[in-house]
């Protein structure tokens, strides 16, 4: 078990005070058998009325009505959570799904259908060709090997770039540019595995990197929100694959939102009343720290922002 704290700050700056429209925030981690939220705080400046809802995927969404105009919008989210990762990397995939191609079971198809469909055109079949080559390298059409291979290959053959601007490159663009952000990598992987009949979905959230953590009270590097992929494998369920880091299993990943398409899982989205030139820029800061969990005798206070 790991106890982690996450601080996520987003700052929007404007040339002059502007009025804000409704803002949609997907910042609260998805709690489940492997993640327990211990405390959470959302601070918005200027003041906002916040209501919570569940979107179509049951992600927690905070809908904020920002009450006053301002030239800076600060959104700060701090939470502490316990993460129980599934250390066992051997997937318990059902026998019929161990080799490609396989059909999902009758009960699962209606709900998976849309996640198998490709969403982005590939007229010259470039993405398919890339996938095909990976497939031909997979011995015996083993599903697990194929997916792990794809995850690693994306990491090694593309150049990672941090892109702050909203929006995602199409898979074809990512392939042609040979580079992309974690969101672009995730989308590319989704479309690649979908082309061989696998159900995949997009996940946005946070990454805990112990190398960036340093000591308990040490300095931390600037982080960003992270994006990766979940693939549905009968028997094992939704399994995380992180093409940015070439890893799978998700032991260091904190999922916030799952979606069929990246456009549905933006951490922060909203509008302002004004001209495009009024927008000066946006800053994002993410810090994820590990915390020693209190033993029966509490030795350390929990970190607070």
């Amino acid at each position: 078990m790991q106890r982690l704290t996450v601080e996520h700050k987003t700052i929007y700056r404007y040339r002059k005070p502007v009025r804000f429209g409704e803002h949609r925030l997907m910042l609260r981690p998805r709690e489940s058998h492997d993640l327990r939220l211990l405390s959470s705080r959302l601070v918005i400046q200027p003041e906002a009325t916040v209501r919570w809802m569940h979107d179509v995927f049951s992600n927690s969404v905070a809908v904020a009505e920002i009450r006053q105009p301002a030239s800076e919008l600060h959104i700060e989210n701090i939470f502490v959570l316990d993460r129980y990762p599934n250390e066992d990397q051997t997937f318990c995939i059902d026998p019929y799904a161990k080799k490609l191609p396989f059909s999902y079971s009758a009960r699962e198809i209606p709900d998976l259908g849309r996640n198998i469909e490709r969403h982005h055109p590939d007229p010259d079949r470039k993405v398919i060709e890339w996938t095909r080559e990976r497939l031909s390298l997979t011995g015996d059409m083993d599903t697990e090997d194929f997916l792990i291979g794809v995850t690693r290959d994306i990491r090694s053959s593309f150049r990672y770039e941090v892109r702050e601007e909203p929006g995602v490159q199409t898979p074809v663009q990512t392939l042609e540019l040979g580079s992309g952000s974690c969101r672009d990598y995730a989308l590319f992987m989704m479309e690649a595995v979908r082309s061989v009949g696998l159900a995949a979905r997009f996940v946005s959230g946070y990454l805990y990197d112990s190398a960036l953590d340093g000591l308990k009270n040490g300095t931390v590097g600037a982080g960003a929100t992270h994006a990766w992929v979940q693939v549905y494998l009968p028997g094992a369920g939704w399994v995380e694959f992180d093409p940015t880091n070439g890893s799978h299993g998700g032991s260091n990943l904190i999922p916030v939102a799952v979606a069929r398409d990246p456009s549905q899982a933006m951490p922060v989205s909203g509008t302002y009343d004004g001209d495009p030139e009024d927008f000066l820029g946006m800053e994002v800061e993410v810090e994820v720290h590990s915390v020693i969990a209190p033993s029966p005798v509490a030795l350390e206070p929990e970190r607070r922002a």
Partner: peptide, 22 residues
């Protein structure tokens, strides 16, 4: 649902998508 029918379709689609190189 008849799994045999679905499998036959899945298999055909797979061959169709991946069976011919560039």
């Amino acid at each position: 649902r008849v799994p045999a029918v679905e499998n036959a379709c899945t298999h055909l689609n797979f061959v169709l998508e991946t069976g011919l190189g560039h």
